[in-house]
Simulated assay, not measured.
Amino acid sequence: MSSPPEGVHIIADDAEALAVAARLAEEFRAGAAERDAARRLPRAELDRLSASGLPAVTIPAGHGGAEVTARTLAEVFRLLASADASLAQIPQSHFVYIEVLRRQGTPEQRAFFFGEVLAGKRFGNAQSEAGTRHVQDIRTRLEPLPDGSYTLTGVKHYSTGALFADWIPVLARAGDDTLHVAYVPRNAPGVTVVDDWDGMGQRTTASGTVRLHAVPVPANRVIPHHLTFQGPQLHGSVAQLLHTAIDAGIASGALAEAVEFVRTSSRPWFESGVDTAAEDPLLIQRFGELAIRVRAAEALLSTAALAVDTARDDLTDHTAAEASIAVAAAKVAAAEAAVETGSALFEVSGTRSALDSLNLHRHWRDARTHTLHDPARWKVQHIGRYVLGGIRPPRHGLL
Score class of each variant (00 low, 15 high):
residue 1 M to W: 04
residue 7 G to M: 14
residue 17 A to K: 01
residue 22 A to Q: 06
residue 25 A to F: 11
residue 25 A to P: 11
residue 26 E to I: 06
residue 27 E to S: 05
residue 30 A to P: 02
residue 41 L to P: 07
residue 42 P to C: 12
residue 46 L to I: 14
residue 48 R to Q: 11
residue 56 A to I: 12
residue 59 I to G: 04
residue 61 A to K: 15
residue 67 E to W: 11
residue 70 A to K: 01
residue 78 R to C: 13
residue 83 A to Y: 00
residue 87 L to H: 03
residue 88 A to Q: 08
residue 89 Q to Y: 00
residue 90 I to Y: 03
residue 93 S to M: 02
residue 94 H to D: 01
residue 94 H to Q: 08
residue 96 V to A: 09
residue 98 I to W: 03
residue 100 V to C: 09
residue 106 T to D: 09
residue 107 P to M: 14
residue 108 E to P: 09
residue 109 Q to S: 10
residue 113 F to L: 08
residue 114 F to T: 03
residue 117 V to D: 00
residue 119 A to W: 12
residue 123 F to C: 07
residue 125 N to K: 11
residue 129 E to C: 10
residue 129 E to P: 02
residue 129 E to D: 09
residue 137 D to P: 00
residue 143 E to N: 08
residue 147 D to S: 08
residue 160 T to E: 02
residue 164 F to E: 15
residue 164 F to P: 04
residue 168 I to Q: 07
residue 170 V to R: 00
residue 173 R to F: 11
residue 174 A to L: 03
residue 175 G to E: 14
residue 178 T to C: 13
residue 181 V to C: 13
residue 188 A to R: 12
residue 188 A to P: 12
residue 188 A to L: 15
residue 193 V to W: 06
residue 194 V to S: 09
residue 196 D to V: 04
residue 199 G to S: 15
residue 200 M to F: 09
residue 200 M to W: 07
residue 201 G to M: 01
residue 203 R to L: 09
residue 207 S to Y: 02
residue 209 T to A: 09
residue 209 T to D: 10
residue 212 L to S: 03
residue 213 H to K: 13
residue 213 H to D: 14
residue 215 V to H: 02
residue 217 V to F: 05
residue 218 P to A: 13
residue 222 V to Y: 07
residue 227 L to T: 13
residue 233 Q to N: 15
residue 233 Q to M: 05
residue 235 H to P: 00
residue 235 H to M: 08
residue 235 H to F: 15
residue 236 G to E: 02
residue 240 Q to V: 13
residue 242 L to H: 00
residue 245 A to Q: 02
residue 249 G to P: 04
residue 250 I to G: 03
residue 251 A to W: 00
residue 251 A to V: 09
residue 251 A to F: 03
residue 253 G to M: 01
residue 257 E to M: 08
residue 259 V to G: 09
residue 267 R to S: 14
residue 268 P to D: 06
residue 268 P to Q: 05
residue 271 E to D: 13
residue 275 D to I: 08
residue 275 D to P: 09
residue 276 T to K: 10
residue 277 A to M: 12
residue 278 A to S: 03
residue 282 L to M: 13
residue 283 L to Y: 02
residue 284 I to G: 06
residue 288 G to N: 09
residue 292 I to Q: 15
residue 295 R to G: 07
residue 296 A to I: 09
residue 299 A to I: 06
residue 300 L to A: 05
residue 300 L to Q: 07
residue 301 L to C: 04
residue 301 L to P: 05
residue 307 A to I: 04
residue 308 V to H: 00
residue 312 R to Y: 04
residue 323 A to C: 13
residue 323 A to Y: 05
residue 324 S to F: 05
residue 325 I to K: 00
residue 327 V to P: 03
residue 327 V to M: 05
residue 331 K to I: 06
residue 336 E to I: 02
residue 339 V to A: 10
residue 343 S to N: 15
residue 344 A to F: 14
residue 345 L to I: 14
residue 345 L to H: 06
residue 346 F to H: 05
residue 352 R to A: 14
residue 353 S to P: 09
residue 359 N to A: 15
residue 366 D to F: 06
residue 368 R to N: 14
residue 369 T to Y: 04
residue 374 D to I: 12
residue 374 D to E: 10
residue 376 A to H: 11
residue 381 Q to V: 15
residue 382 H to K: 08
residue 383 I to W: 00
residue 388 L to C: 07
residue 388 L to E: 11
residue 389 G to Y: 11
residue 391 I to C: 06
residue 394 P to W: 12
residue 396 H to S: 06
